[in-house]
């Protein structure tokens, strides 16, 4: 380990390091820790021989077997669909409500204590309640996801809208920028760093709630499938489902990061300029 890290540092300092070797080093940087962890797991499961702890090899083999085209269509895609639907709905509602509240101090004064209360309720406890009201269906699952992921988006949007620079507000007034253009060019763009931060939190909450809503009450979906495997002691299958969820979350986070880089290109530029780069 220590030898590897010394090599890396030397290579970074060496100006003539060729492109190929730099790419190889970068790959090593990214993969080293995952490989070590998988190795440690392998060792642990091989040594202990625990029934509940299959080897990574078994899990990988099961993964390929279990998550074929059929399950993908029956369980994975509906889950992802509900996740994206709920997250989109939560984002639209959160931003819309956040803009209204951010612009009106009077509304904020009335609504903020109530919002704080609702925010404090852990969303999973709403599942039994929403089941009673809505039944066991897609609407209920969307409602659960929205009820959880809306809060960071709403509260961050309020903060972002309140923090719009007064000089820019005066500038817009002087140049007659109002109405829709005022909203989109001034308010939403100005609040976009906070909105994106809220959406990032909201996304991870949405994934959690997607799984939970399916564990409680469902006949399909990732959460449902994992619980079924656990109940039937299909241990490697259960692990492969957990792995799939992890990969899904990771993939979505990468996609979100790419979108964020585009939307906040200006913001990163301003910050870099302020640091004198």
């Amino acid at each position: 380990m220590s030898a590897a890290s010394t090599d890396t540092r030397d290579a970074a300092r060496r100006p003539g390091a060729s492109g190929a070797s730099r790419i190889a080093l970068r790959a090593l940087h990214l993969l080293l820790l995952p490989l070590v962890l998988i190795g440690a797991w392998w060792l642990a499961s091989a040594v202990t021989g625990l029934y509940y702890l299959p080897t990574p090899g078994e899990i990988a083999a099961t993964f390929v077997e279990v998550w074929g085209a059929e399950r993908l269509a029956a369980d994975v895609l509906p889950s992802i669909g509900r996740l994206i639907g709920g997250f989109t709905l939560g984002s639209v509602l959160g931003v819309a409500l956040g803009v209204v509240l951010g612009l009106s101090a009077r509304l904020r004064a009335v609504l903020e204590p109530v919002l704080e209360f609702f925010r404090a309720i852990p969303p999973p406890v709403l599942v039994p309640l929403l089941m009673l009201f809505m039944g066991v269906n897609t609407t209920m699952k969307l409602a659960v996801i929205v009820s959880g992921c809306i809060w960071p988006i709403l509260l961050n949007t309020i903060e972002g809208v309140r923090a719009v620079d007064p000089v820019l507000i005066d500038t817009c007034r002087c140049y007659g920028v109002r109405g829709r253009r005022w909203l989109t060019t001034l308010v939403l763009r100005s609040a976009s760093p906070q909105i994106m931060a809220g959406m990032r939190q909201g996304l991870s909450i949405a994934i959690i709630l997607m799984v939970i809503s399916e564990m409680f009450a469902s006949s399909s979906g990732l959460g449902y499938t994992i619980i079924q495997f656990q109940r039937s002691f299909a241990i490697p299958e259960m692990w492969s489902g957990i792995l799939l969820l992890g990969l899904l979350g990771f993939g979505l986070s990468v996609l979100f990061g790419l979108a964020e880089r585009r939307v906040l290109y200006w913001y990163n530029g301003v910050r870099a300029a302020a640091r004198g780069e």
Partner: peptide, 18 residues
């Protein structure tokens, strides 16, 4: 409508996203 203003805080009166 026919008056323009240039503010002291140039850094804050331009839209950094435009």
């Amino acid at each position: 409508p026919d008056m323009a203003v240039v503010f002291q805080e140039y850094g804050r009166s331009l839209f950094p996203w435009l």
